[in-house]
Amino acid sequence: MPHFICITCGTQFAETAGEPGHCPVCDDERQYVGHGGQQWTTLDRQRRTHRNRIEPEADGLLGIGTEPAFAINERALLVRAPGGNLLWDCIALVDDDTVARVNQAGGIRAIAISHPHYYSGMVEWSRAFGDVPILLHAADREWVMRDAPAIEYWEGETRALWDDMMLVRCGGHFAGGTVAHVPHLHEGRGALLTGDVIQVAMDNRHVGFMRSFPNYIPLSARAVRAIEAAVEPYPFDSIHGAWWGRSIATDARAALARSVDRYIQALEGVYDGR
């Protein structure tokens, strides 16, 4: 039986004889069901119509995204590290060409995902690279639509990885919303990989925060301050977001502080645009 994939959010479901009746991820207020109603595809179908683009995001960091655009259209990041590569976030499509190119770059030791909107094809990706572990925060377990033995649900505020990398629970967008701290990137100045838990703005000079981006539901000032506090202990000079070209290349800690202040001033009605 096929594992159907939601066309709107990219989530792959447990196998069923027919299309699922609905997508709980899209029914949630943080997502949406399009005007055309719920629609589905499969990995086999997607492999016939799409391909993955793989190119450097920074030194030691490869972006992996699908073309033409599919679902939320995030791109994953492959962190190249001495102790093994980390796949940060995920996409629905994995095919033979992608596997070959990722293996040329050193393969994957584990997969870690920021939040449920990017769970997508995580089980297929794990299996394609030898059933590598999938690290998800336990607070978001209810949003896993295809479970697998490879999934490891971690709890608490941090999950240490190898080479001093760290997963940090920030909450916000989802209760288990997570960012990755990668200290060896950018010549040892460090980077945060944030998905859209900390969303890099279009100007690549600020970040933003939302409970729902498509439905324009903001986070509270308290939640935003908690995100800032969660990453404060970690040195970083850059932030890499969820889409191509959405990165703050340098002085990202100051950009985060500036953005948090601006956001809270706007909530309180005292932001004057300066």
Rank of each mutant, 00 (worst) to 15 (best):
Val207Gln: 00
Gly245Pro: 10
Ile198Gly: 03
Ala229Asp: 06
Phe70Gly: 02
Arg258Cys: 13
Ala148Tyr: 01
Thr194Met: 11
Ile72Arg: 07
His115Ser: 14
Trp244Pro: 00
Glu29Met: 05
Thr42His: 12
Pro183Val: 06
Pro116Leu: 13
Asp96Ile: 01
Glu67Val: 02
Met210Asp: 12
Leu136Ala: 12
Met165Tyr: 04
Met202Ile: 07
Gln199Leu: 01
Arg253Lys: 15
Gln199Phe: 03
Gln39Cys: 08
Glu57Val: 04
Gly83Arg: 14
Asp272Phe: 07
Thr41Ala: 12
Phe4Asn: 07
Pro149Glu: 14
His137Lys: 11
Glu15Leu: 05
Ala229Asn: 01
Glu142Ala: 14
Arg274Pro: 00
Pro214Thr: 04
Gln39Ala: 13
Val168Phe: 08
Phe129Gln: 06
Val25Arg: 05
Arg222Met: 08
Ala69Tyr: 02
Ala105Arg: 10
Glu268Ile: 00
Ser238Thr: 11
Leu185His: 13
Asn215Val: 06
Leu93Tyr: 13
Ile54Pro: 00
Met210Gly: 06
His181Met: 07
Ile91Arg: 03
Ile248Gly: 05
Trp88Asn: 02
Ser212Thr: 01
Leu61Asn: 12
Trp40His: 13
Thr11His: 15
Arg258Gly: 09
Ala148Gly: 00
Ala128Asn: 10
Asp164Ala: 15
Arg222Trp: 02
Ile151Thr: 04
Ala221Ile: 08
Gly177Val: 03
Gly10Trp: 03
Ala14Met: 09
Leu193Val: 01
Gly63Arg: 15
Val260Arg: 06
Asp89Arg: 04
Arg48Phe: 09
Ala110Cys: 14
Ile54Phe: 03
Val182Leu: 07
Asp237Arg: 08
Glu157His: 08
Met145Tyr: 14
Pro183Leu: 09
Ile227Pro: 03
Gly37Cys: 14
Gly34Thr: 02
Gln265Asn: 09
Ser120Trp: 06
Ala230Lys: 00
Leu78Glu: 08
Thr16Asn: 15
Glu157Ala: 11
Met165Cys: 09
Gly121Tyr: 02
Thr178Leu: 09
Val260Gln: 04
Leu78Met: 11
Asp272Met: 13
Tyr271Pro: 11
